[in-house]
Design a protein around this nucleic acid. Sequence first.
DNA 1: AGTATTATGTAATAAAATTACAAGACATAC
DNA 2: GTATGTCTTGTAATTTTATTACATAATACT
Lengths: 293, 293
Amino acid sequence: MNILHLIKVQRDQLSKAEAKLADEILAAPDEAVNMPTAELARRAGVSDPMVSRFCRSLGCNSFPEFKVQLATALAHRASFISESVSKGDSAHTVIEKRINANQAALEYLRSHLDVHTVDAAVKAMSQARQIIIAGMGGAAAIAQDAQHKLFRLGIPTVAYDDHLMMRMAAAGANPKDCFLVFSVTGRTSAMIEIAELVKQSQATLIVITNPESPLAELADITITSGDELEDTTIYVPMTTRIMILTIIDIIATALALAQGPTIEAQLKKVKHSLDGTKLELPPEGKNSKTTKN
Amino acid sequence: MNILHLIKVQRDQLSKAEAKLADEILAAPDEAVNMPTAELARRAGVSDPMVSRFCRSLGCNSFPEFKVQLATALAHRASFISESVSKGDSAHTVIEKRINANQAALEYLRSHLDVHTVDAAVKAMSQARQIIIAGMGGAAAIAQDAQHKLFRLGIPTVAYDDHLMMRMAAAGANPKDCFLVFSVTGRTSAMIEIAELVKQSQATLIVITNPESPLAELADITITSGDELEDTTIYVPMTTRIMILTIIDIIATALALAQGPTIEAQLKKVKHSLDGTKLELPPEGKNSKTTKN
DNA sequence: AGTATTATGTAATAAAATTACAAGACATAC
DNA sequence: GTATGTCTTGTAATTTTATTACATAATACT
């Protein structure tokens, strides 16, 4: 467990002086990470050696070791406040900022993706007769991507980006089917209609959307799309895409694991179907990888 | 720039004693991060104060500060050796591992995405008469996603996933057109054919692929797809997708910036076109966001 | 209330990092 | 090739930082 987290968790079981230190560190970890014991002690209003003791209670062998741990935790916690791009930015700055933003989105996902929900989704999908995926507009590509990933696992899967096709599929669905709906905001009327039709067919409805949306209300299982934190800055409606893709990745991986040993053979079969379509060797012949993807 | 990277880059411009330290640290950064100066100096075979000097040359104010930086760099790098999923993993473990892997992929991108290449791609695309995007199989969804992102910027853009359509588009391309080709491995014969046709049409060819592939050879501008680091583990052909998506994100963002002030109006127009398709208010009415995406 | 236990601060000590300085290496100019 | 200047490195001294030892205060328990 990361040290910042540990401090938060243990905060209430610590002694008075130690709690003061905990508070001081949690309040400004970025500053604390570059302070000597004396400075930290002064700020927290405790004596110098308390700092060493505090580090010991947390399982570190020394204050410097604690600082290393803190730096590590801080690195993972990647700044969320982060930096949206602005006019004068160079390509280099844009690269840094966008990568930071996407890493931060994943960090958000780490703490907000509910294990039980994922478990429920995986269970529903693994028992489904077929999985029908729906996504419109920006979510169409996501739906297609999800289809590609799931069908490789040998699961009967289809993706629609056309409203009329979705209506027909939803109306005609079997109760054993599972609908997977992508909608970032969860307020697109067309998608809500589809969701209602799915409910009437009694198929299982999994939606990846803003949890505080009308669409989420209708669903059997709701997974956040990250819309609730989307930066309103006009340039960057991208972080949600990364989050949703990672969610699919997680679910597909878990599904593959749930499938058991048969899955490896299945994946190999699909992979080998592409054998004839690739050039075997890289140009200089120095890299002798086998074909893949 | 991350400190480990900095050490690598500066390695050859350092003095003899400093180079010894650099080598020692690069050889075992995980150990170095928890050593006092004396120990590190001993291992590198240099004197004690050299360590302080070394830190200064790297732009740190003190050895402890250097250790914090090192820990930060290590934290980013750490997840890389990472953990591919295995049979007994719980949903929670899968979540952690996949998020780590994807974050690590982004970290890789940070150090391997070349600024000048991105600049060149943005320049070519901003001057293009139209952008034609091609992607097959797993890359089809990526192509569609890229199209969606670029067309919003008001750039004439089309995406194909059909080989025959691609052939026709490539053969009939104008020299002012820009082809954007996605192929993870760069060894799909069908895609290479397309690239050759594009070359004959003298359109600009940008490919996102494995830089050591026949496809990359043909391109005017090559951007890595991350294929060279893809874990061969059968479960996870996902990291490349995240990388490619982030590359698109970066290019689109840079393009938007390059476009100047007109872009905001353009994006608003596209956004408002969706106004009639959304429900205005969330269910409980407590969240009063405006419509988006 | 009195005693045991724990928590904290003060002062002393030990450890760690840095500075000051001098010796050595290396280059350049003569 | 030697002299001179610059840069690099090590040694010793110094300063800063962290920890230990001990005493006192606070708290809990009988």
